[in-house]
Amino acid sequence: MNEIHDRHSRDRASTPSTPSTPSARPVPAAAGTGRQPGTATLERGASTRSRRGSATARAGDAPSGAIAGDVTQARVMRSEWTKLRSLRSTQWTMGLAVLLLIGLAVPLCISASHNWTVADAQAGNQDPVYQSLAGLLLAQVAVGVLGVLTMTGEYATGMIRATLGLVPRRLPVLWAKAAVLAGVTFVAMLVASLVSFLIGQAILGSHDVGVSLSSDGAARAILGAAFYLTAIALLGLTLGALIRHTAGAVTALLGAVLGLPLIFSMFGERLESAQRYLPALLGNAISSTSPARLTDLVSPGRAFVMLCLYIAVLGVASAYALTRRDV
């Protein structure tokens, strides 16, 4: 016993900066329930004294002497930002999304520049803006997977228990993950969309079928593409929170985004009017400019509202599931 004690104090001594005493907070009712209340209280009192020296005090959020402050939404967001940036999967999926978006604009616009006539373009029968942004059809898979992994990666590794153990109210974790993911995705996809547009229009412009950034709806379409991809990432996140398994959540997301439009179209006219409200076609609506296309799609404004609605509904569902379930 003595030897063990000595060994321990030596271990402690080798890391002199470690605060070696417990929380300075009083233990409520310690005297009432402990088997040897006197001893316990005495020990705690003694150790509390020796500890205050090295601890940091943050004004307002913790009793002086505590190294840990209160959990706040801002702190949880910082934690989630650290988590997101420190994983290779984030760099991979985000890099892939950027690459797909820009990389597909080149062949799509080269192909169009050979096939389109100047007369067609002037008549508004073609959509040069969407042509340069259509890489989002593949980029959405990458950002969607990133969204799913943000949640399911924690369940798969057990990290979720550490996360929710530190934030027992749980919802701040969901909001923080959503905010950080949305922020990162939107910024990255906005830049990528803009670059895609500029490269695409440069190619189309060399055959006089391109448009400029100031042309009608072009800026809105670029913002729309970034917004749509952010929405898909968030849908991935909420599906990840609901399903909690990577494969299941990815399947659900791809089924909804890529599969449903095909199924709907196979039912013919009966579901045609409903089809335009599917996420994929809302994405099409919000990132294109051609009047011809807009006829069988909802307006960009309505597409924005509908996408927000999808996120809100799935967000509420995953918030409910996250707070109710055991982990």
Partner: peptide
Amino acid sequence: RDHLLALAHTHGIP
């Protein structure tokens, strides 16, 4: 380190 940092941030632990 990143693991510990992420956990520490939730409580503003330096």
